[in-house]
């Protein structure tokens, strides 16, 4: 498990039914690209988050396949449709098999 991986998401607390909201997500993760070499000249192996998904009440909002070219501490901003009150689930999948998750509820205004 990568160390000190912490997700941070910004979701509005309320929305009108059918409104489109902007969601910002950040997760602290080194995103070791596999291109760097350590002091001895050996390549540091790749170890990144390779997939990020956002679901709302079980339906998919966005599914991002990520490659080493995504910066350290991956940041995504996107928009979601909110048809009803419910919960957003954010999931990050790491190369090493770890899965990081965060949830945020949203109520109707």
């Amino acid at each position: 498990m990568a160390e000190n991986v912490r997700p941070r998401v910004r979701v509005p607390k309320t929305a009108a039914a059918g409104e489109v909201v902007t969601i910002k997500t950040l997760i602290s993760h080194n995103m070791e690209s596999g291109q760097r070499k350590d002091g001895d000249g050996n390549s540091i192996p790749r170890s990144i988050i390779n997939r990020f998904t956002c679901d709302f009440n079980g339906q998919n909002v966005i599914d991002v396949k990520m490659e080493p070219a995504i910066s350290t501490n991956p940041y995504f901003e996107f928009e979601a449709l909110v048809p009803e009150a419910g919960e957003f689930t954010f999931t990050w999948y790491d190369d090493d098999g770890s899965v990081y998750e965060d949830t945020q509820p949203i109520t109707l205004a």
Binding site: V61, I62, V64, I70, F76
Partner: peptide
């Protein structure tokens, strides 16, 4: 770099990120 797949509840086909 990345592949963004928009689901049923995507509010718009828009995404922003930071890359190397």
């Amino acid at each position: 770099v990345a592949e963004f797949n928009f689901g049923a509840l995507a509010g718009s086909r828009y995404a922003s990120t930071r890359i190397r």
